[in-house]
Every structure is written in structure tokens, then in C-alpha cells.
């Protein structure tokens, strides 16, 4: 292949090779760049049009009820929002679960399935920094998914002339809850996705695991309710991530539980928080272990 045979572009080709003598930024910059790339990728930005459909559709579905609630509130003139901040995510948990199922493999399994991971590890970034960037990217994507409608809800409430001092505390509680949701769900989603690199399997596995946990939780809760054991009913929430985080939001931040029975007392709040933190730590450690092996 000579440049001449290449047609018009050959003229540009002849500039010759230019060396790069600009700055080479360190691992902190690279980790931040990977974090942003992960966040963008989770919504299909910078990918093909087909990759954008699913995440943006789910984001729209997530935001739509907030818009409807806002419009109805201002039109009819309710003095409280018909769908509260802290129950919003739990009410729409199916959407969050599907998003997590659809996008965790995009964030995590993709690099394994197409064997891109060795390219990262042949660069200055360490494996733990890679995992941190991916985890943080997924957390941020979930915060956007859940936080955006809540923020719209707050804006709508204020536009409907509902008093700020009544709205803000619940909004902040819900946003704190969103953060905990994002850490717990991202951890679960990424671990499952990292262990199931094959196409399609990851999606099914993430959604499946969350649905099964949710089912078990509901069954145990119903049984305990039948037996009239309120304490046990409360602790049943530990079995599934949604009531678990809802319990943390209720117990620690003082929101109303969306599952009827929250964690019983201060001890319950402590147990729920401890389990949530432990879950996040375990997920992180499992991810590190997954990438500790020489991948190539």
C-alpha cells in the first residue's frame, strides 16, 4: 500500500508522523475519564442509536409519572403531592430493576465479552481504579435515573405554590435514599453482570435475582403478618434491596416506610444500615476479586 494508491486522502497522509509532547495525566484523571465514559455509556451516549433506545426510554418512563403528578397537582390544586418523594422509587421499582438489568451488562460485561478489559489493564490504570470508576459510573447513572424525577417533582410542587419548607425535608430524605439505593443496586447489578459476561444472560440474571428476592421477601412478610409477628415482618425487608434501602431511609432519615412495616426501632435501623453497608462492601470486594485475575 502506497500513499498514492489511497486517493485524495493520501495528500493528508503525507504530513508525516507527529510526536506528542503534551501532558500525560495520571491515574486520577484516567479514573475520572472512565467514570464519565461509564456514566455516558449507561445512557447509550457515544454509542450507536440502538444502544440509546432502552436507557432513554426507561428514563422517560421514570420521569413521566413525576410530570403527571405535577400537572394534576397544579390543575386540581392538592395541598400535598399525591405521590410522595420517598415512595416514588419504590412505586416505580420495576423500572429501576429493568434499567439495572439492561445497563449493568452494558457497563460491566461488555468489556469482558468483547475482551476490551486487557486494553485498560495494559494502561496506567490499576484494576481497583478500574472497578472504582465503573462502580461510581453506575451509581451516578442510577442517581440520575431516580433523582431526576424527584427533582422534577419538587420543581412541580413549588410551581404549584406548595410551601418549600414542607417539601424540602422529604425531598432531601428521598434523595439521600436515592444515593443508598444507587450504591446497593449498582453493587448487585455489577457483580451479577461481571459474573455473567455472555450476551443476554446478564440482563436475565440481574432482573431474575431482584425479582426472586422481591418475591421471597413478600412471601416471608405475608407469612409473618399472618402469624402476627410485627418484629419479624419488619426484618423481612432485609431480604430484598428495595425494602432494605427503604428501611434505611425510614430508620435513619426518618421517612415513612413505603412497605407498611419498616425496621422496628433504633436497633432495626442499625441492622438495616449495617446490612446495606455490608452489601456494598461485599459487592466491591467481589468485583475487585473478579478483576484481580490476569484477564487476557
Amino acid at each position: 500500500m502506497t500513499d498514492q494508491q489511497r486517493g485524495p486522502a493520501g495528500a493528508i497522509h503525507d504530513i508525516g508522523y507527529r510526536h506528542y509532547d503534551g501532558p500525560r495525566l495520571g491515574p486520577a484523571y484516567i479514573r475520572r475519564a472512565l467514570f464519565l465514559e461509564t456514566l455516558r455509556g449507561a445512557f447509550g451516549l457515544g454509542r450507536s442509536a440502538r444502544s440509546k433506545v432502552m436507557p432513554l426510554l426507561l428514563l422517560a418512563v421514570m420521569v413521566l409519572p413525576a410530570l403527571v403528578v405535577t400537572v394534576v397537582t397544579s390543575y386540581i390544586g392538592f395541598d400535598t403531592l399525591p405521590l410522595g418523594y420517598t415512595e416514588y422509587v419504590v412505586t416505580l421499582q420495576v423500572v429501576v430493576t429493568v434499567f439495572l438489568g439492561a445497563q449493568s451488562p452494558v457497563v460491566m460485561s461488555r468489556d469482558l465479552r468483547f475482551r476490551v478489559a486487557p486494553l485498560y489493564f495494559s494502561r496506567p490504570l490499576s484494576r481497583s481504579q478500574y472497578v472504582q470508576a465503573k462502580y461510581a459510573g453506575m451509581v451516578a447513572a442510577l442517581v440520575v435515573l431516580m433523582g431526576l424525577p424527584l427533582t422534577l417533582l419538587l420543581a412541580g410542587a413549588l410551581l404549584s405554590k406548595l410551601p418549600l419548607d414542607e417539601q424540602l425535608p422529604d425531598y432531601l430524605r428521598a434523595m439521600a435514599g436515592v444515593l443508598v439505593f444507587a450504591f446497593v443496586l449498582a453493587g448487585i447489578g455489577l457483580v451479577i453482570a461481571a459474573l455473567t459476561p455472555r450476551r443476554g444472560v446478564g440482563v436475565a440474571a440481574v432482573v431474575g435475582v431482584l425479582l426472586v428476592l422481591s418475591g421471597i421477601q413478600a412471601t416471608v412478610r405475608a407469612l409473618a403478618g399472618e402469624l402476627g409477628n410485627d418484629t419479624f415482618t419488619g426484618y423481612a425487608g432485609l431480604l430484598s434491596p428495595y425494602p432494605l434501602v427503604d428501611g434505611v431511609t425510614a430508620g435513619v432519615f426518618g421517612a415513612d416506610s413505603s412497605f407498611g412495616e419498616g425496621p422496628p426501632g433504633a436497633l432495626g435501623a442499625l441492622v438495616f444500615t449495617a446490612v446495606a453497608v455490608l452489601l456494598v462492601v461485599v459487592c466491591y470486594v467481589v468485583l475487585l476479586a473478579r478483576y484481580r485475575k490476569a484477564l487476557s
Binding site: G26, A33, R47, S48
Partner: peptide, 29 residues
Amino acid sequence: YMPEHDCLPPDVSATEFVVHMGRMSGLPT
């Protein structure tokens, strides 16, 4: 490093991919 095996995600363009890999080596955007 150019590995022996295939390592390209199919849903991004070569430009996007190489820019990203440049950043992953520490180059400003």
C-alpha cells in the same frame, strides 16, 4: 500494547474508541 485477540466493542465507532483509549492513557480530551 496490541493484543492478539479481538478487543473491539461493536457498537462504537473507531474514532470514539481510539479517543477513549487515548484518554485512558492519560491524554487530555
